[in-house]
Nucleic acid binder design. Structure first.
Lengths: 209, 209
DNA sequence: TAGATTGTTAATCGATTAACAATC
DNA sequence: TAGATTGTTAATCGATTAACAATC
């Protein structure tokens, strides 16, 4: 497992996980690299290369066991190690994520939300308490959450990311339209940029004409 | 402009747009490929290669004019051509997107929302009327929206995508955790997969340890 | 055993980086 | 003019695909 795994492979891992889950739900117990590749739009060769970055999960002449492979990928993605998260920004987007997103299924427990709005502070959203954002630093110092979810207005994003990093956050899940990519090299950042995604769609539509 | 532009370049275009906007807001009028690359975490060479897929926007010995380049990239992304969109699913996530996301800024007008909940049907969310999802097909046939935004429960995603394609939709912006990539080759799909993003973050955190 | 399909090495393809002449 | 920086070609690097021996 000592070869360096490329970014491209890492980004495909969650897709393997999703598709294998689907197969499991359908009661399928084994799958060949050919069939899995067809389902995902990859070549059989690529599927085998990808999986072999992490180990030999298959069996010659047979294929891959769905259950076993799903478990293994879950472990590679560390979905089995429970982590804690806080969310900063409990407005529309923040509360939508709190209410809708299944943190637990992805190995996370959402322990607290933070906001500046006095009408929200002190309430609960789907069982998650909303605290005053001014208490963020103290809370993190005491409770060292693993991940910070950024759903506040983007002008506060850098400042908030700074506080989280000060307190030893291990990762940032960024929903603001700001490029946090490079600023904080030490802490991994994953961006969910709605606008970028829609712009790409706009471009693709233009190409079709 | 006849060279085929790679997927990798296309995905960087929105980032150029975002960063150039930022520069413009700061009152900066020109930028070199070196400085823009530093800001974005790319090499100067890559910046020049990327931009030259679409034309020579710079000037030797000077650099790139921020305003002009921003405009040009906006045109490449077709942000200047107004398109219409409908959103299917006006629950938590759907309403969060309706309320928060600036469609107009990205060249879109959100003309209608659809839902199955009788409590929502007939209401308005941020000025967008919510219709019965059973009227989706008729509405699209009559109004031919350009893009469909999928924010309904994932079990209805494929069926809904089918209806939209029947009615000649030009693009799909998919927020459900389903891989619509390949099903409908003719219609471009852009996925916003929260879960995949968080799984990648989980993996990266695991790597750091 | 024969057929199927993996794991893995080699070949190809494409994307990034480096280099440099052109030119503002 | 001299300095800076582009546009573009060539070199390098990495990722995908093809091929095939190993083996279930």
């Amino acid at each position: 497992m000592e070869k360096k795994v490329s970014q491209a492979v890492i980004r495909r891992l969650p897709r393997y996980h999703t598709h294998l889950s689907e197969l499991q739900d359908m009661g399928i117990t084994k799958i060949s690299s050919k069939d899995l590749g067809d389902k995902m739009g990859l070549t059989a060769s690529q599927v085998r290369q990808d999986l072999n970055c992490f180990g030999g999960f298959g069996q010659q002449g047979y294929g891959y066991p769905v259950d076993g492979l799903l478990d293994s990928i879950g472990q590679i993605l560390k979905l089995d190690e429970m982590k804690s998260a806080v969310i900063i920004g409990a407005g529309n987007l923040g509360s939508a994520i709190i209410n809708n997103f299944n943190f637990f299924k992805n190995g996370f427990r959402l322990v607290a939300a933070f906001d500046a709005d006095p009408n929200l502070i002190g309430t609960e959203i789907s069982g998650v308490p909303v605290y005053d954002v001014r208490e963020l630093r103290e809370f993190c110092t005491n409770n060292h959450p693993d991940v910070g979810v950024l759903t506040m207005p983007k002008k506060f994003a850098r400042e908030t990311a700074g506080i989280l990093c000060d307190c030893g956050i291990r990762g940032i899940w960024n929903f603001t339209n700001i490029d946090l990519h490079l600023d904080i090299d030490a802490v991994p950042v994953e961006n969910v940029h709605f606008a970028e995604s829609l712009m790409v769609l706009s471009y693709k539509i233009g190409e079709k004409k």
